[in-house]
Nucleic acid binder design. Structure first.
Lengths: 123, 123
DNA sequence: CGTAACCATTTACGCGTGTAAACATAATTT
DNA sequence: AAATTATGTTTACACGCGTAAATGGTTACG
């Protein structure tokens, strides 16, 4: 089953550094998110049930490690959006942002570089 | 309030051609989606409540027209994903697909053309 | 040892969603 | 006019989500 947005916030912490305790996760995410302890615990339990994280006992507490990889998650999410909105193709997405003037100088420079690299790979 | 995925399917029909009756929408979307009549009606009502469509009486039925524009919706959705997963920037998204080898020849060609056009615009 | 502190697990609750069945009402057909 | 059809509106219901309170079980401290 897919992980929800709130759950993804917790995953993000674990992707940043793992393993972590619930307390550490709360410390990193609680203030910004305005979450209580119970909220983080619930999310962790749901992630456990979804096999997105693994918990290992460490004394009286648990250490949580991500099982779902960030790459996998990003892949699913982006592919979903691409399929739903752009016929599964990347160029129309970029065109969309281009039309909205949402491409920064930096984006454009990086895209150029990327295309050049693709050239070099496949001579 | 944001429109849901099922609601977006209905919007898609209306974006394709409007105005439309509920029956026409069902005809276009029912088979693929395995939806009954009631389902489409419910979704239309929720879209009405969210001010995403407008309904105009036409004899005994209604003609539905989109109020929310496809552009707006696509913008919201893509920006959301970009912000959540790629720090709000387009290039990393493209890089991601590039790494996953999900860029088609056609994509690459189109991206090239797009970048060239950007060049020409801003000489 | 009894009790407080610390963690985790269970339970809760309102809300949106997906999916319709029921119901209401006006128009058409018999 | 009665029955049927067409169409929209209301109600339903299970499920996931966001958010947390309540409960339960250990360890630590007085």
């Amino acid at each position: 089953m897919a992980i929800s947005e709130a759950e993804a916030v917790v995953m993000d912490v674990l992707w940043g550094k793992a393993p972590r305790t619930a307390e550490e996760i709360l410390a990193e995410v609680g203030p910004a998110q305005n979450w209580q302890e119970g909220t983080v615990k619930s999310l962790l339990n749901r992630l456990l049930r979804k096999n997105a994280v693994h918990a290992e006992r460490d004394g009286r507490r648990y250490l949580y490690t991500p099982l779902l990889l960030r790459e996998q998650y990003v892949q699913q999410e982006s592919k979903g959006l691409l399929d739903r909105l752009f016929g599964g193709r990347v160029a129309p997405l970029v065109a969309h942002f281009s039309e909205q003037r949402k491409l920064s100088k930096k984006d454009i420079a990086e895209l150029r570089k990327l295309l050049k690299e693709l050239d070099d790979e496949q001579p």
